[in-house]
């Protein structure tokens, strides 16, 4: 005699719950639990399949044909869309490659080289660790000495406007005025370091990181 689990599986799998195989019918005639299970399953399946079926609306075909016509009209220009997307993708990829290439080649680089010689520079010597409450004496920008441009660590070609400005302001060509940068305070050490100062916006103060031990200067941002 087959087990109840097997019989219930056969009841579940039957295509017609009212036409069960002989071995199942034989079993449920003797097993009340399986008989009850068969009745429940039959009632449930009748309930699920016996409900009113919904049909498509009468204008189903007309609506479908309208949508299909729209799809067809769209699909007739598929080549335009695909080529257009391909062009945009290609152009975007080209721009990305160019930007990366320019960055790696140093075109946009703002790095400054460490000078080999030690040129004179205007630095405030030995800034005190404790700032006195008295107001520091005002220093005229014009009084800040100029620094030879040849010692700045970057080429003149990168700054063509500086030459023009210097020439028009009666500053010798190749020299660097105080307007090009700001005052650099080096705490605890007075070294003769060439501090190339990047161009900043009007009113901004460049923030520099000065490693006196290694004699390197790095621009870390601007402060307004």
């Amino acid at each position: 005699m087959n087990g109840c689990k097997y019989i219930r599986e056969r009841i579940d799998e039957a295509d017609n719950p009212n036409l069960l195989p002989f071995e199942v019918a034989e079993h449920i005639a003797e097993c009340q639990d399986c008989g009850r299970f068969a009745v429940e399953r039959s009632g449930l399946r009748a309930l699920l399949s016996g409900g009113t079926r919904v049909n498509a609306p009468v204008n189903f075909d007309a609506m479908l044909n309208a949508r299909l016509a729209e799809v067809k009209s769209r699909s007739s220009f598929w080549w335009l869309g695909s080529v257009g997307y391909a062009r945009i993708a290609t152009a975007t990829a080209a721009v990305v490659v160019m930007v990366f290439a320019a960055q790696f080649s140093g075109l946009f680089s703002t790095k400054t080289a460490v000078p080999t010689s030690e040129p004179p520079i205007a630095l405030v010597p030995d800034a005190p660790t404790h700032v006195p409450s008295v107001r520091p004496p005002e220093v005229s920008i014009a009084s800040v000495p100029v620094v030879p441009r040849s010692n700045r660590g970057y080429t003149n070609a990168a700054r063509p406007r500086r030459d023009a400005m210097a020439a028009s302001a009666s500053v010798p060509i190749g020299y660097f005025t105080a307007e090009d940068g700001g005052v650099v305070l080096v705490r605890g050490r007075n070294g003769d370091i060439d501090v190339p100062v990047p161009t900043v916006s009007v009113g901004a103060q460049p923030l520099l990181y000065v490693s006196a031990g290694q004699r390197t200067v790095r621009n870390v941002g601007s402060s307004f």
Binding site: A56, M63, L64, R67, L68, V71
Partner: peptide, 18 residues
């Protein structure tokens, strides 16, 4: 949802066609 089921049935046929 009857209205939505009609739309999805139409979408089914459109996919069959395309």
């Amino acid at each position: 949802d009857y209205d939505r089921s009609v739309e999805l049935a139409q979408e089914t046929f459109i996919r069959v066609y395309t």
